[in-house]
Design a protein around this nucleic acid. Structure first.
Lengths: 406, 406
DNA sequence: ACAGTTTCCCGTAAATGC
DNA sequence: TGCATTTACGGGAAACTG
């Protein structure tokens, strides 16, 4: 019997960690007033347990230590205390899905030792508590969620996700300390690059290659030992915030191109220059702007004329720009020219030598705004053409350029 | 003394009708969960009253008749019942501003005689109630707001505003009936055109002229007597909804041009054709799309070539389009051309004969997206050029056209 | 099935707190 | 004063509900 109780002690597990249904890519971030879902499973699926086990979620149970001592915010689970579910689902096994809970701040933040943590560095947990009798035995079974972060505005998502990633990578030790961020250990580049690549995989269905990672390494590692410190990673204008803007840009506008591998993305200006310089006129590549912190992408191309080699780049496209015109459309319609004269499209080959239509053809004219293919019943159809004044003189022999007059 | 009581009975007035601060152009529309403001003034500003008068707002007081009988929704004033203000403000007079109230539905809509009114046809009122003694007299003074409409989503604003306009125009009779929309009287075109013009005046700082109104008359009046009936005005795809989309378009993107009178706007296709036909090649005018119910504007221009006259119109610009490129920029950058050949801008004179730069010059290059004038530090600046394939052959003698090659 | 109505929640802006 | 955090609420879409 005592063996049984021991077994049962670990019988309750969390099958799906707390996650906002509206933010499935980023579990363990909860927003006040926004519902989230947790699924709990009881492993010992004996008929005798059917309908006899009640599970109750509790926010930060037994951690008054962390809350009151450090002055963490405290929360209730709104719309939940009443809703204690029976653990039995028709499909298979003893499962309960809690899906109407939302965190709600208890007003009056307790004062205590302040560690100067930001709210996105406060780790919280949700425990699921069970009490039932079996064969005369009192069983108190608990399961605890992974440490999670509670925010109150979506502008906190990037920092919150940084915390979740960091703490999940490093707190493999059993008693996960909710004060983890009082003194968070550093990460090796090996660990961080892994996680970053996963982010791109999950958002854009393609991870980061060696070249991209090596460029990123320089952005993240500032320590001779090759370690990344939380204080740098999480600070206001950190490389992570920059990366997160790019992830968002990809998610909204560039999934196709990123998945196809058409976006080199992480290349320094210098390396861009070096790569393009030895290529044919009209070779271009796509790289993320390093200065724009909201995520932006630019097209760099090479041009050889009169024995000189120039590498140019267009003003980076932001999310706003890309909702007006898609990147493939931009590439196919792009024109440069001199005032009142011949214009041409300087973009011919995606680096190293892929004809642009091969790489982007299938995505042309799918913009949502103007230049879509919908019927216009009597109206003259409009296309938005990105245009620049030619940064240099037109190539002497037009060559394969499609010349055209505007 | 009884004279005094009579005087005092009307001493409480509503100085500013209920209005959401976020929607000042549309008073008397309240949204559940959104705060609104009401200002109340006590006219008899005697020193003896200072600080002794308490005013309390009550939703739908004494109108159980309307609520329970017809099954109107019932509301409380959230965050207010506790907050009964004293009527005394330093500035001048006895004034109280209630600004933290928000309507909140009482759940369980009472069943009763259903008149099949929509929620935006339910009229409600807020009463401000005072009880105080003066010189031994019990004074019960009340002031009542104009009838208002409560919505729960911004997608109900257009219909709600239709109700507010209609009921304020017609219920000049004293006991304003909250069941007004059970059998709302019709409006004369005279009355409606007045109100419509006011809408444009308040949103775009310019009313409607005779020509515009005469075009609108045909859209609204479908009755031989020249009356407009509520059932037509308020139905789902009514002319009002169309107009409201245009008001929104003006508010967001076209205030300048509308104020300047550069937008003819309400002209039928036929009349556009007639007007332009006898004008010089390159004359254009701006008119609102009659088919797009979200508000859209198109440019129509005339072209005489080879003895034939053509009037063309570009695909209408929607709100989305106009956030990518402003209308003035569109006009100055617009190009039409034949595949791989010369292009030109067919827009020269705003009807009747104003050179386009005179009308729009001061608004060029103020788009928020691309083609702005901000510095680009090293990047090649981008401009979005709206382009169309030429609907007809290029004009034989280029004339004053600015020719240019793309 | 469906239309009117409400809820949900992101994203931005503004307000608040410290 | 500036930064961190929270609130506000439009807008679009999903969910609800008769």
């Amino acid at each position: 019997w005592s063996l049984l109780t021991k077994l049962l002690a670990n019988a309750l597990v969390i099958e799906k960690q707390p996650v906002m249904t509206s933010l499935p890519q980023r579990p363990l971030i909860l927003k006040t007033g926004v519902r989230f879902t947790v699924t709990v499973r009881f492993l010992a699926n004996l008929p005798a347990f059917q309908g006899r086990i009640k599970v109750k979620p509790v926010f930060d149970k037994d951690v008054e230590e962390a809350n009151t001592v450090t002055g963490f915010r405290q929360f209730n689970l709104d719309k939940t205390d009443s809703k204690v579910l029976d653990v039995n689902t028709p499909d298979e096994g003893l499962v309960a899905e809690f899906d109407q809970m939302s965190p709600k701040v208890k007003k009056g933040r307790p004062k205590g030792y302040e560690y100067n943590l930001r709210v996105t560095e406060e780790l919280h947990i949700i425990k699921f508590v069970t009490e039932f009798q079996y064969a005369g035995l009192e069983c108190n079974i608990e399961a605890s969620s992974l440490p999670l972060v509670v925010i109150c505005s979506t502008n906190q998502v990037p920092s919150a996700w940084a915390s979740v990633m960091w703490s999940n990578l490093l707190s493999t030790c059993k008693p996960r300390k909710l004060l983890f961020f009082v003194d968070p250990p550093p990460l090796t580049w090996q660990q961080l690059s892994q996680v970053l690549s996963w982010q791109f995989l999950s958002v854009g269905q393609r991870g980061l290659d060696e070249n991209q990672l090596s460029m990123l390494r320089d952005k993240f590692v500032d320590d001779p030992d090759g370690l990344i410190h939380w204080s740098n990673f999480s600070k206001n204008e950190s490389a992570w915030i920059w990366i997160d803007g790019i992830l968002d840009l990809i998610k909204r506008h560039l999934v196709d191109l990123w998945r196809d591998g058409s976006i080199m993305g992480f290349v320094s200006r210098e390396r861009t220059w070096a790569l393009l310089q030895e290529k044919e006129t009209g070779t271009f590549l796509l790289r993320f702007s390093e200065s724009n912190k909201d995520g932006a992408i630019t097209i760099s191309w090479v041009e050889n004329s009169n024995g000189e080699t120039h590498v140019h780049a267009v003003e980076p496209y932001t999310k706003q720009n890309l909702s007006a015109i898609s990147l493939p459309d931009s590439i196919t319609y792009y024109r440069i020219g001199t005032q009142g004269n011949t214009t041409w499209n300087p973009l011919l080959y995606l680096y190293p030598d892929i004809p642009k239509d091969t790489a982007f053809g299938r995505y042309y004219n799918t913009s949502e705004t103007l230049s879509s293919k919908k019927p216009t019943n009597g109206y003259v159809r409009l296309t938005l053409i990105p245009f620049s004044d030619a940064p240099t003189l037109p190539p002497s022999p037009p060559g394969e350029m499609e010349m055209m007059e505007i």
